[in-house]
Design a protein around this nucleic acid. Structure first.
Length: 474
DNA sequence: ATGTTC
């Protein structure tokens, strides 16, 4: 591996693979050397039709076959689709909701607020919510995404303008989703889940770019709500189902894989088409899941503050997808080219001007929402022009693990986390106490270091830093 | 990430 500059590293390509490019500080490269992150990136770089280089963001760590924090663009004309390069939690993502409240408004009510949020947004493994949805609703959710559920009353009309893909990816076909996935998903719409998923009430601690903060409607002292969740059992089952399909495809097509977890299918094949149609259904499911939770969050604030969500200024800032593949046009070797960009634990971060960015933000670059680990800071960034050429318009997605879940449970007593949260005056609600160790800040990289790396590599601009007042988890 | 089990 050679160092290109302070925040860019490269593993050279060879006859079997394209180069790997890593955006990270020296400290973070040290963590990546401790697990299989770089080996997995090298394996991914050997996949056919990869364009330019395999990319690893500073929050990168080991994943299923393909590193979390990995970005791979495959030629859309004769390229491939790979579920392992998208992830189990299809369209895991983050959304940020504004309020007009300040820390002073929140402080006296933080306990009842967190209790209400914890009650109204079910969390934990297997959590469900009874909203009376039918299998027919679920089909509409898969095909139409957020606009379907907003029409049913679960949101503000203009929410869809502030969701990646406008909350609805075209080409979804629920006929390609198994009955088991649908059964698992039906009553999970509107639930948080477990693991690193969370709901946080945060305050904007520091604005670092006033022009961009003004454009995003963010100001110092303001209270915001951040939600991190995905497609629950529905997306997980879609991934499991198609990994099995693609494993058979490798055998019947005599494909030799660098890692059996990196299975793929050529675009245009029945297997790729079916997976894409199912994957897009799960993408839309996740957008709807976060939309319903947004509605529950607004209702919770209404209950506690006795004012309408509208009067409380609870507009959506933006909703970004983390685990997704999309056909996009990028400049490759000076020419426009269609590629299938796979982002796994990576955020689209388009620079100013791209048509995909909502009109209100288009002149400024796409909002990029970066959650930190539990009890630490989160950030809002903005995409910039350099990312379009360096990373297919992609940025990091969080702080990224540095310890495995097992290691964290072994090394970090849950009391240490609870005490630290208490010292920081953060109200915490958690279903499963084991999560407190797995998800503690010491199990993760320092989000400040990750954001410093991505900004240093000129991939995104830092807009504001937020700190938590309350956190709810699975 | 996950009705933590193919």
């Amino acid at each position: 591996m050679e160092k290109i500059d302070e925040f860019t590293w490269q593993i050279k390509g060879d006859e079997n693979s394209k180069p790997v490019k890593i955006f990270a500080s020296e400290e973070i490269i040290g963590y990546m050397k401790r697990d299989r992150t770089l080996m997995q990136a090298k394996n991914a770089a050997s996949m056919p039709s990869l364009v330019n280089s395999m990319l690893v963001m500073p929050d990168g760590h080991e994943g299923y076959g393909f590193p979390v924090g990995g970005v791979a663009a495959f030629d859309a004309d004769n390229g491939i689709i790979s579920p392992g390069a998208i992830g189990f939690d299809i369209n895991c993502g983050v959304r940020l909701i504004k309020t007009d409240l300040t820390e002073e408004d929140i402080k006296p009510k933080i306990k009842p607020l967190m209790d209400t949020l914890f009650k109204n947004v079910p969390s934990g493994v297997g959590s469900v919510i009874r909203l009376g949805f039918t299998p027919q609703d679920l089909e509409k959710v898969a095909v139409e995404g957020a606009r379907y559920i907003i029409d049913k009353g679960y949101g503000f009309k203009d929410d869809v303008d502030r969701i990646e893909e406008n909350g609805s990816m075209e080409g979804a076909d629920p006929d390609k989703v198994s009955a088991l996935a649908k059964k698992r998903g039906l009553h999970e719409l509107g639930t948080l889940g477990a693991g690193n998923h969370f709901l946080e009430v945060q305050k904007v601690e520091k604005v670092l770019d006033q022009r961009l903060a003004d454009a995003f409607g963010i100001k110092e002292g303001q209270v915001v709500v951040m939600v991190h969740s995905g497609s629950r059992g529905y997306g997980h089952q879609v991934c499991s189902d198609y990994l099995r399909v693609l494993s058979d495809y490798q055998k019947s097509h005599n494909i030799t894989l660098a890692d059996p977890e990196l299975s793929y299918a050529y675009i245009g094949s029945k297997e790729a088409n079916d997976y894409l149609a199912a994957m897009k259904s799960a993408v839309n499911f996740a957008f709807v899941n976060r939309q319903i939770m947004t509605n529950s969050i607004r209702k919770s604030f209404e209950e506690v503050f006795g004012k309408s969500a509208d009067a409380l200024g609870m507009d959506l800032v933006y909703d970004v997808a983390h685990n997704i593949a999309k056909e996009e046009e990028h400049i490759v070797d000076g020419k426009r080219k269609k590629v299938y960009v796979h982002r796994k634990g990576a955020t689209r971060a388009f620079g100013p001007g791209r048509i995909e960015i909502p009109k209100i933000y288009r002149d400024y670059g796409q909002p990029v929402i970066i959650p930190g680990s539990m009890g630490t800071a989160s950030y809002i960034l903005a995409g910039r022009e350099e990312a379009m050429l360096e990373s297919f318009g992609s940025s990091c997605h969080g702080s990224g693990r540095k310890m495995s879940r097992h290691e964290a449970i072994r090394e970090i007593p849950e009391s240490k986390t609870f005490n630290t949260m208490k010292d920081k005056h953060i109200e915490i609600r958690v279903r499963n106490r084991k999560l407190v160790s797995e998800e503690s800040e010491w199990a993760y990289k320092d989000v400040d270091e990750v954001v410093k790396s991505i900004a240093g590599a000129k991939i995104s601009n830092i807009v504001a830093r937020m700190t938590p007042l309350g956190v709810a988890k699975g």
